[in-house]
Design a protein around this nucleic acid. Sequence first.
DNA 1: GCTCGGTGATACCGCCCAGGTATCACCGCT
DNA 2: AGCGGTGATACCTGGGCGGTATCACCGAGC
Lengths: 282, 282
Amino acid sequence: MDTLETRELRYFVTVAEELHFSRAAERLGIAQPPLSRAIQQLERRLGVTLLERDRRGVALTDAGRVLLDEARVLLDSVAAVARRTQRAASAPNRLTLATKAGANHDLLRKLLDAHAAEPDAAEIEVVLCGMGDQARMLRDGRADVAFMQRPFDALVGFDTEELLTEQQVAILPAEHPLAARTSLTLADIADVPGLPVARWPNQDGTYEPGPGPEINDLSQLAQLIALGHTSAVLCASSRSWLWSAHVAVPLTDAPHVTTVLAWPAHSRSQAVARLVKTAVNL
Amino acid sequence: MDTLETRELRYFVTVAEELHFSRAAERLGIAQPPLSRAIQQLERRLGVTLLERDRRGVALTDAGRVLLDEARVLLDSVAAVARRTQRAASAPNRLTLATKAGANHDLLRKLLDAHAAEPDAAEIEVVLCGMGDQARMLRDGRADVAFMQRPFDALVGFDTEELLTEQQVAILPAEHPLAARTSLTLADIADVPGLPVARWPNQDGTYEPGPGPEINDLSQLAQLIALGHTSAVLCASSRSWLWSAHVAVPLTDAPHVTTVLAWPAHSRSQAVARLVKTAVNL
DNA sequence: GCTCGGTGATACCGCCCAGGTATCACCGCT
DNA sequence: AGCGGTGATACCTGGGCGGTATCACCGAGC
């Protein structure tokens, strides 16, 4: 058995996602017959049935589900390899750091200052991204390192270095009665009439059902809190961007949040290693 | 830029390893001109110079070094994906667990017993491997889970669950004077005349220079210790395979060793998840 | 029941590109 | 100058990828 080609994997992933050869072929920009043949060849090569075709549709076998999961991250990795190689050539001494917009501003500032002070430090480009996008950016090579937060972000597959552990705080409208308290518990802010907790999207962009407003980024959140429409639970360093209409109250029973510096496993980049070293010594 | 094909990456890795087109072509079983062309095409596609060809040889550029590192693990991943898919099809409910021969025998026994007691538990095949082979076996898909040890094994790129933290002990010949002590320090056993500490191979199979014998596995080590020729530092659970000619003495200042259950990051295997759950509840 | 629409599989064809052979250009050594 | 050895180039061939046309099959309809 010689090795799989990425073209075959791309074809398979598309078919497995659509569960429909013709639609998959259209998405891939090829005709349906070559696609059927490519999948057959892939199955023959692996010696494994990946798709169960019966009347009325296509279904994944167990092995097919395994391959779908694995092939997706593999294709991400292929794209990542290409991008990292290109970046290594075009900007030999530059790193891209991804972080959630608004999070850990002070820490980031300290890290950048400390790193800039190092001799022949890499130039660092900061990319602000939405919730949970850092993992994707690391995986597909658009970023070299990222700020991520335990236990919120999935750190699996990355190498990490802990930077800072902090309490969480409730961000409340300044005029709300609860804002006068010096500390709160999660129970205190759950189900407060007229102040539902805001809901963040899941990985796939959907929202859990609930009373609170659906939000995408911190600016939306900030405004909704300032308007007195919602509250939120965030890590203590969020204080650095609070409005005067906001109040942050410590939560005694919320899990602590650890901010980590994360980078792709197996990275051998000198520049990443130097940045991590700087971060450790902060 | 469309995506890289694994064929191109295999070609590039071979050339980068040989730094010689003709030899690389021979290893790949193709002729030299198509190989030159393939590499040129890869460079054109990436828009990056990967190899510096001048008279008397080929050298990697910085970008080429990046691609070599990345492509190697990527090709491993491709092979892993194929193998895991095949295993998912041929043995739907079987897991392969890799562990260092001789290490953590009792813990393994407990895990296997507990797991066998679960309803519809996966069948578990235990593969014993040499030092540090577990990482490779997880990466290339020959194993689904592995016992690994911090801080010795590189856990980067894997998801892990801590199982057991234990002290390290010095394993000494029973007749040696130091064997009578109730505890030792690392300094005590370093540079003992006539009893040099055994040397394990590095990842690449080479050995650090030093006075002690070069060893590959625990049976070699056991015999050499029993003969009074060497000593070793191992985790406390190694006591389960000691000979009567061995004595284990606790080391007060050696770092503790944590045995973890490790599996490939992003694994979504139900069977792995169930085994991990069992392990956590041990 | 018949057609009709829609599925994936098959048959067949054309063309591109991977791979092979022969050769070149260039160099360091005798 | 000649030789051996490098990678690059030129050119040809063939297999495989992708295209069109069509089939086999099935469910849903007046």
